[in-house]
Structure formats: structure tokens, C-alpha cells
Write a protein that binds this DNA or RNA. Sequence first.
DNA 1: AATGAATGAGAATTCATTCAT
DNA 2: GATGAATGAATTCTCATTCAT
Lengths: 190, 190, 190, 190
Amino acid sequence: MRLKDDNKKDAIFEATIQLINEVGYENVSMSKIGRKAGVSPSTIYVYFENKEDMLKKVYLESKMKFAWGMIRGIRNEDSVRQVAFQLVKNVLDYVQENESYFLFTEQFADSPLMRDLDMSEINKIFGPIYEIVERSQKEGILKQLPPELLFAFGYYPVTQFAKGKLRLDVSFSQMDIESLQQMFWDAIKV
Amino acid sequence: MRLKDDNKKDAIFEATIQLINEVGYENVSMSKIGRKAGVSPSTIYVYFENKEDMLKKVYLESKMKFAWGMIRGIRNEDSVRQVAFQLVKNVLDYVQENESYFLFTEQFADSPLMRDLDMSEINKIFGPIYEIVERSQKEGILKQLPPELLFAFGYYPVTQFAKGKLRLDVSFSQMDIESLQQMFWDAIKV
Amino acid sequence: MRLKDDNKKDAIFEATIQLINEVGYENVSMSKIGRKAGVSPSTIYVYFENKEDMLKKVYLESKMKFAWGMIRGIRNEDSVRQVAFQLVKNVLDYVQENESYFLFTEQFADSPLMRDLDMSEINKIFGPIYEIVERSQKEGILKQLPPELLFAFGYYPVTQFAKGKLRLDVSFSQMDIESLQQMFWDAIKV
Amino acid sequence: MRLKDDNKKDAIFEATIQLINEVGYENVSMSKIGRKAGVSPSTIYVYFENKEDMLKKVYLESKMKFAWGMIRGIRNEDSVRQVAFQLVKNVLDYVQENESYFLFTEQFADSPLMRDLDMSEINKIFGPIYEIVERSQKEGILKQLPPELLFAFGYYPVTQFAKGKLRLDVSFSQMDIESLQQMFWDAIKV
DNA sequence: AATGAATGAGAATTCATTCAT
DNA sequence: GATGAATGAATTCTCATTCAT
């Protein structure tokens, strides 16, 4: 009996992400993924129930990776201003270092396929940040608004800006980073 | 010889948008679109070169509609603060009044299909706004940053927030609107 | 616009029956049927919903043909003995003249696929026979048993006997026919 | 080295029959059979050459079982009338007590898969019956016809009748049994 | 212009069988 | 002997597009 080979699963993950970024979801077939991953298309069905199951799992893993990237280096005792600046920096770093993972998730963000996924595991990762926000709101440093609204200004403009740069194949300047950090901070601080 | 019938073209546009929102892009076929539009699938090829051509045209038209919605009621003589507030309001109004058009464009925003589209016609619509921004930067009211960066804070957080609400099928409160307006303004003003 | 071509439908019917007799149900694929019928496999889907739908329709049509063959030449004023003899003769004639249709239906008689088919249309064809049976039972000529039980002795031994002969590729002698008729009659008469 | 395990072989037999009755031949795969039998699909290949070989062996074994069931309790010194009545009774009893075996064989009776099987072993079981028939024909009790023709009236109407009852999930009444016995007897006796 | 029939190409998936342990 | 992983070959079915009218 052969043992299940984790390399194969990883190769399928990687091939899926690369291919979808290269040719778009609508042009990705199981046999193309298999070919790129170096396995038979039917082997994919040893590791996943079907195409949808596979895509969802790749998506969740990518999101999880992103979440860990976002909170990297943030400590509970940091000032909320520091945290805000760090978040923006982390997002930009992650996007740049994990371009293909990032673009893959963006392409599925609005797909009906990814509705109703259980994101609770991922959201838990942001627990510490929520605590800092709450504390800072009590201290009167942050606007008294739902945290989601505050996050929105640190996440969406940053990722969309980054996406534009990736498409043009240019990297971010130090000034870009500082501008985004400052604007985020101005948006959420009292 | 009958003339090409604009009603039919419109029916095809509308059917495409509705269908894609209902069942997702991957489940939309030319014959389903034809059926919903009340025409034969082959009739679609009288009006469009092929499926891709059609989707691109529907996408561009939707984006155009959105652009007009965004600058609605904005006049050159308005203060930039007024303009900023109006933009946020316009986005939210448009999204709410044109849900299916909006969701359709969002679903394709990151699709490789829509890469390399000529958006210059659409960008022209924002000409007056660019002028106001430039003027305000000279007057020292707005941060001295690329306009795209400024816009990013008035567009992405707002649309993503709106999308979340649409998914939950709830509308925006007056406080939601004011919060988004104020945060946008705080982010871009000096 | 091309018109639907009844020849194509017939060709598909015929090809299905021939193929299933030649290689068995488990080895018949839509593409083999298409090839034999001289059409593309996808053309079959213009005429039928799917494989199951097609098989059911071919089955029902074959059964209908058989039913008409069974009552051929039987008139209400015939004596029940005459009718019984005629039925046996008709079955044998039909089987011999429509070997492929007959063998096709036999192969599906016990298939789960053909459960729950609406046979009412077909059963109606036997209405006149039922009347004769009823009449004869009142007259004390036939055994007082459910008609299905009576029919069973005129149908199953005859078809199964015929099937055996077909397999050996021999035809029925006059004596075979007369024996089956007499045995049927002895079984059901009082 | 372990020995081939008859329990496993039996489990595979049983699983095959149950599964085919439950979901139909077209939906039965080697791995489903393995799962139901509690063995790996590849284990089946230890006991059988391939799927076809396995099905044929299961079929032959089932037929053998049926044959033994049919001659149960019949002794050479019984009168032929007794024998005829007993045969009908035996068939009905067997069908009722071994529903899944019986339905399994019926489903394959006309399948090309089961053509060209060597049934001589099974036919030998009926030797004693043939002797009784021959004797009775000499004594002028039975019609002077090929035994197969005589058997046909004791076997096919009975099994088909029984199958109809099984489908409706009802059992046979004493009157059903007696009717079938009497009709069989009337059909074959002089 | 309009259309329903027709189809080649390709999709996801299944499966009997073999492989490696 | 026993097994789960692996796969080539095949299956059903869909679909964008073209054809013939």
C-alpha cells in the first residue's frame, strides 16, 4: 500500500493557484491542474471530493495564510497607532511576498462558490486586534464605530491600491506606504 | 430587411446581468441567456461577436452607468468637502438602486476576462472631479497625494461595506452614511 | 433554421436497440450510439433529455409495438379459444419478425431503470382482451382466476421458449406452435 | 503466508448481491462492493480474476442454489402429479426465502454477460426430474413433448408471478399457490 | 434579421485495475 | 494475503458557435 503523499496535495494546491492567476477561473479544468501539478486528473479526486471542494479548501488556506500575515509582529502592548501602521505595512508586505495567493483570493472574493464558507476559524486570528480596538475606543482614541467599519479603511484601500501596482508590475515606494498608513490613521482616530 | 432591434440588445444585456447574479458566471450559458431574454441563442451573435465580446460590453456599460451615478449632482463650484460627502452618498445610493448592475461588475472586477479593457471613455467622466481635487490640493485643503490614492478611501471601503449589507439584505442607516463620509474626509483632508 | 429530422430520431432508436443487443447494456455508450446512428453524440441530446430518458422512450415504444402485435387479428366476436390460440401465434410471430425489438425489451424487463414507467397507455391496448376474458369466465369457459394469472401462461412460457430458439438461431416448427397453444388453453380452460 | 479466507469470499458474494439489488447493476463498482464487504477493492482481485469473472461466479452459485431449492423434497417414487405440485411450491418458497438471490439472477438472466456460461453442472441437478418425466410420458400421463416445453409452464409463469408480488411487497396466498399448481398440471398432463 | 438544429471540443467525474508496500 | 494510492481510459453531458433556412 502506498502512503498518501503530502507533496502531491501541495502540488495540486500550488498548481491551482498558479493556473487560476494565469488563465482565470473559467479556463481552469481539472485536467489542466493535474498536468501542472504532475499528477493524473483522477488523482485529484483522491485528495478532494470534487472541484468545488478543492477550490474552497485552497481558498480557506490562502485566507488563513493572509490572516496570519496581517497580525505578524503585533503585540498586545503596542499603541493602537502603532498597530494601525503595522497592519497597513503587513498587508502590503504580504501582498508583495505572496502575490499569487493574494490574487487568487481576490478573484474568488465575490464568487458565489465561496459564499457560506465557515470563516470562524480565520476570524479568531484577529481576536487580539479586536481587543486593542475596544480598549482604544474606551480610551477615546478611536472613533466610536463598529470595528468592521474601522478595519474597512485599513484593508480595502490598501489591498486595491496594491493590486493596481501588481498589475503594473511596480512595487510600492516608502512614500506610498506612509501615505496609506497616515490616511488610515486619520480616518479612524478621533 | 428588419433593422437591428435595440430592445433585443437591451433584453440580452439585462438577462445576462440577472442570470449571472442568480446562478453565477460558471452556470450561465448562451442559450440560458437567450431563453431569459426571449431570443434564440443564435440571435445573440447578431449583436455581439461572441460570448466574451458580449460580457465585456455589458461590463463596460455597467461601469459607465456607475460612473455617471457617482458624479450625479456634483457641480464645479461645490466645496471639495461637499464633493467628498456627495461622492460617498452617491456610491451608496447607486449600489442600493442598482444592486444587480453593481454586483455584476464586482463579480468581474478581478477576472482576467476584464483585463485590458479600454476604460478611458469611463475615466473621462471623472474629469471634473479631478479638477476639483487639483484645485483643492493647490489651496492646501487636500493631502498632496496622487488622486487615485485619495479616491481609494472614498470608494473601496464604501462599496465593500455596501456589499456586506446587500448580502445580509439590510439597508444603510443615516449613521452609516455619515460615518463613511466623515472617515473618507478625515483620511484625505490635510 | 433547420427542421428537426425524424429520420435522426429513428436512427437513434434503431442504433440503440441494435447496439444493446449486440454488446449489452453495460457496454453501450452515447458515443457508440451516435456513431452507429450516424449523428454526433451531442445530437442525441437534441432529441432526448439524457441517456435514461432515451432508453425509457425506446423501451416504451418497443413495448407498444409488441402490444399491437399481440392483439393483431383478434376480434371481439371470436371464441375465447380462438383468441387464446391467436395470442400465442401472435407472440411467436412478433418475436420472430421483430427479434431485436423483442430482445431489447427482455433485457430491460428487470432493470431498475424501467421501474415506475407509465404503462397505462400500453395496457389500454389489451382492453378488448380483458372483456373477452370476463365474458368467458361468466360463461364458465375459463377458470375463475385473476386475468393476470391466466395471461401469465400464455405469455411467459411462450416468450421464454421463443428466446431459447432465437439464441440457438432456429425457428419454431408448426408443432411447437400448436403445443404451446394447446398447453396454454389447457392451463386456463375450466 | 495467510490462506485465502472463505469468509472474505462469502462477504464479497453477499455484498455483490445486496448492492446490485439495492442500486442496480449500473451503479455498482468494485470499491462499493469492497466497502460493503468490509475489504479493500484490491482484495477482490485476490479471489477473482476481474469483475466479470466475479459476477459470473456469483451468478452460477445463485443458480445452483436455486436448482437445489427446486428439487427439495422430491423423491423418485413420487407420482408425477405430486412432483409437479411440489415443483411449483418449491419455486415459490425459494423465491420468498431467497428474495435477493432470486432477483439478482433475474436481473442478469438476459444479460450478454451471462451468455455462454457452462450450466451443465447445474442442469445435472435436474437429472432425477427428467427421469420422472420420461417415465410418465411412457405411461401416457404427460404430453409427449420436449421436457423443456413442459418445464416452461411450471417455471416462468410462477417466477414472473412471484416477481410481481415481490415488487408489491405482498406474499402469496394459499389460493395463489394452488391455482399455479393446477394450471401447470392442466398444461402438461394428457 | 432571426432562429432552432447540429456539432466538435472539452468539461467533471467514475471506475476497473495495477502498483508499491 | 491484504491494502489504499494512483491512474488511463472511458463516460455522460454541456456549451459556444455555426449551419441552413
